[in-house]
Amino acid sequence: MGRINMREMKDNQSGVIAGVRVGGDLGRRIRDMGLVTGTPFQVQGRAPLYDPVALRVRGFVLTLRNREADCIEVEVE
């Protein structure tokens, strides 16, 4: 187990949200969409230009920019 930044994750890698390190609109939006501490998810893939990234979380697909993924710490195997 280790703690890394979401941007560093590989395609198809799974992880658990360890913390969302941003406030304001962005933080609110990320949490409203269900990325709260302890949530398991999987990196589904990335756009053709490697940004944004698509996650499968809580049974749906969520996309966010790499810049936004930077604010999220994850726990990975």
Binding site: D25, R29, F60, V61, L62, L64
Partner: peptide, 10 residues
């Protein structure tokens, strides 16, 4: 920029 955080609906 507004957050991109968006759902890809099925």
């Amino acid at each position: 920029s507004s957050p991109f955080v968006m759902e890809l609906p099925p």
